[in-house]
Design a protein around this nucleic acid. Sequence first.
DNA 1: CCGATAGCAAGAACTATTCTAAATTCACGC
DNA 2: GCGTGAATTTAGAATAGTTCTTGCTATCGG
Lengths: 143, 143
Amino acid sequence: MLAKPSIKRSANTGIADEPSELRMTRQRREVYRVLLAQRDHPTAYDVFMRVKDGLPHISLATVYNCLEALVEHDLVRQVNFDREPSRYCPNLEEHGHFHDRDTGVIHDVKFKPGIKLADVLDLPHGAVIQDVEINLRGQLSLA
Amino acid sequence: MLAKPSIKRSANTGIADEPSELRMTRQRREVYRVLLAQRDHPTAYDVFMRVKDGLPHISLATVYNCLEALVEHDLVRQVNFDREPSRYCPNLEEHGHFHDRDTGVIHDVKFKPGIKLADVLDLPHGAVIQDVEINLRGQLSLA
DNA sequence: CCGATAGCAAGAACTATTCTAAATTCACGC
DNA sequence: GCGTGAATTTAGAATAGTTCTTGCTATCGG
């Protein structure tokens, strides 16, 4: 997602389509805290296990709900490699992901300074990009 | 996948790790033909429906097997948007995909001439890229 | 405090995909 | 042409990550 963070904002104005604010419940706060605390791109299940330390009664479904809410409100990005379980990333800067086949670790990959995606891609005429996903797979040669 | 096409090649030399050639069965040929005939990034199920015209008794599992074999041998690329059903693309040039939210159509997106991914990304030191996936979502403004 | 709305929990349901086991096909040497 | 072993196909069962349903609970505005 391109950054458009929104946490608690002004009260609803009554205008129909206004995106609603995210209510920060105990569960959502804990899920978000867990994501910030250890930025290793955990799966929903990983998050579930970590959140249980603070909220032993939380259910996996709630973790999914919370992650969805956080993603929807652009506090967190969902990262998908092929059809593996989704992973979650609190880094909101535009960046890609490098999956190391040897270790399984996913590294954030930034653009070189000054580079914009639209500068390097031949986009369809009139294309308005709402979402960018760049996923790399490979290995870290030790040489 | 980075291009490394291999269809029928020379007979096996006896060397252990040589990647084996792809045996072109009726089913695989038909699946491949269908992908080349209509390059609209069909799902496995779409392919299944199309292949049935020529091979009415083919099973969905076989279509999955064939697609996997074709992907494995770099004749076809698998395209994943989030966790939606995988789509299949016979375009082997390095390119990305733009998913139009309004129509659902997926467009191929080429790099501007002369641009290499490594030129624009800050890769981890020593990273060897085996596979690149660039997925965009947005709309085609009619203006 | 009251009613309405949003969120939570537990488990069932869903669905794209993979696996299993048995039957078929194929390449190849004879 | 024909047997043989390996690869492939098939149909259906199984899997797994995720989403849905239902009833309960918390929260908010008034």
